[in-house]
Design a protein around this nucleic acid. Sequence first.
DNA 1: CGACCATTGAAAACGATTTTCATTTTCAAT
DNA 2: ATTGAAAATGAAAATCGTTTTCAATGGTCG
Lengths: 147, 147
Amino acid sequence: MREFLKTKGFKMTPQRELIFRAFFEHGDHVSVDELYDKVRELDHTIGYSTVWRNLKLICKVGLAEEVNLGDGVTRYDRVTQVPHGHLFCTNCKKLIEFNVDQVVGLLAQVSRDHAFAPDSFKVEIHGLCAECSAKTEQIKNPEQVKS
Amino acid sequence: MREFLKTKGFKMTPQRELIFRAFFEHGDHVSVDELYDKVRELDHTIGYSTVWRNLKLICKVGLAEEVNLGDGVTRYDRVTQVPHGHLFCTNCKKLIEFNVDQVVGLLAQVSRDHAFAPDSFKVEIHGLCAECSAKTEQIKNPEQVKS
DNA sequence: CGACCATTGAAAACGATTTTCATTTTCAAT
DNA sequence: ATTGAAAATGAAAATCGTTTTCAATGGTCG
Ligand SMILES: [Mn+2]
Ligand SMILES: [Mn+2]
Ligand SMILES: [Zn+2]
Ligand SMILES: [Zn+2]
């Protein structure tokens, strides 16, 4: 890691080391706030802006990407070998990943059709996860015990 | 329109009339700022919050949806018969729509696989449109006239 | 060891969105 | 037409996640 960053002209610092570790070990889909809290447990002197800047750095060197689910906070998603889509529960904010190989095939064709040079594909399904869906069902149809 | 809103318990006002008209006649994919500017040309006394609230209202009654392209501003997209995806040029911000029938088919299956109750599917391709793509090409490979 | 420049932390700035509040307007019932 | 309750408006302020500023610190390399 240190070497990887050095080749890109960045320096390694204790704070950076800690933030990178925290992100890659426990941090997928974290917001700045969430990672800040995690990192603070290990070193309560680290500043918020340092966490923010290092998350941006992780993106700049291509190890993560910002994800915007439309709820006002930016999350940071590790870049993986295979691209994936997100099932986002608007109730409990759970995020489930799924394979998008087939979808990407279709979207690549769409891009070609429009002479569009794609950088990235974003595929999201918003709705209710199994658990929240079950709960809502209950609320709408309270157990009709009476005949 | 007046009747449609009345049945939902909302009142009609001159401001609302103007804002709705502006949105449905010239406003697809507008931000609040953009629609505010448009509406201001017709009535320079309308307040920003009134435009904001009425865009929210248009969404609430199901005639539009918020779109978040990750550039920090919320846009408002008319709800159409057939769902569509967006090709978003990160350079010139152009937005091109495309058919997602096939994609939605795949995503519906993904939802079923996860017992997920989908509300909406979001399909975006970020990159460079044909024009911007051509320009960038030029910059990277300036006409190599010399041998 | 310096010199140089990236990095840090605290605080302030930013900017889009949302809320507040006093006032005005709509609209259904008199 | 008059009235009253509820909804809507406009200006201003509040909110809140993000981003910048700036002085101080610290890493890298000769
Ligand atoms: Mn992910
Ligand atoms: Mn659209
Ligand atoms: Zn859920
Ligand atoms: Zn473009």
